[in-house]
Amino acid sequence: MSKPNYTGIYNMVSQNNFEEYLAALDVNYALRKVVCILKPSKHIEHDVNSGEMKIKTVTTFKNFDMDFTLGQEFTEDLGPVDGRKCQTTVNWDGDKLVCVQRGEKEGRGWTHWLEGNILHLEMRAQGVTAKQVFKKAE
């Protein structure tokens, strides 16, 4: 079975439990409030043959770029959320992209999956789970 191609621009349509997730990451109150009102878009370039991916999260506050190759550990700059860095690996679990982040927060990571033109993002840290849902732009 071939893996899905995540390439596209996706606009956020909903989020759940995001402020609690940011609190679990020790993001200060004022920054949490700002980040929670943003409506980010995800700009994803995915080369299914090489496994190279570029995910750019775009907001009116700050943008966040993540370039990586599936299965290869890299140092991720967590910039717009908490200014920290961690060791990150993104790999396939079936047709889902699963990220494991090793750093100062236990159980930190995320999972992306597609259902038609809907992109799901589940984020985890310290036993707290948040979810964002994005719709692919036409």
Rank of each mutant, 00 (worst) to 15 (best):
F61C: 10
P40T: 04
T89K: 13
L114S: 04
L97R: 12
F61P: 04
Q87C: 06
L78V: 08
E52K: 14
Q101G: 03
G103F: 02
G116I: 03
V100W: 01
G116V: 00
D67A: 05
D77M: 10
H43C: 05
P80N: 12
N91Y: 13
G71P: 05
R102F: 00
K96H: 13
H46L: 09
L70Q: 10
V35E: 06
L114W: 02
R32H: 15
D77E: 14
H112T: 01
V90D: 05
F64V: 04
E76L: 02
C36W: 07
L38R: 07
E115S: 08
K42L: 12
G107Y: 05
L78F: 08
L97C: 14
V35M: 09
W92H: 09
L78E: 12
F68W: 05
E45A: 10
E115R: 02
V90N: 06
G71C: 03
D77C: 11
G109H: 10
T57C: 15
P40C: 08
G103R: 03
F64E: 15
D93K: 11
E45S: 06
V34R: 04
T89P: 00
N117R: 01
V48R: 00
R108G: 00
D82T: 10
W110N: 14
M66Y: 08
F68H: 07
D65Y: 07
W110V: 00
V100M: 15
E73V: 00
G103H: 03
K33G: 00
V100Y: 02
N63Q: 11
S41K: 14
K56V: 12
T69R: 15
K96Q: 15
E52P: 00
H46F: 08
H112N: 13
N49D: 14
C99Y: 01
G71V: 00
M66N: 14
G109M: 04
G103W: 02
S50C: 09
E115M: 00
D82N: 15
T111I: 12
V81E: 05
K39Y: 01
K85M: 07
E106R: 10
L97G: 11
R32T: 15
E104H: 05
T75A: 03
N91E: 15
V35I: 12
L31N: 14
C36A: 14
T89L: 09
G103Y: 05
L78W: 04
C36I: 05
L97Q: 14
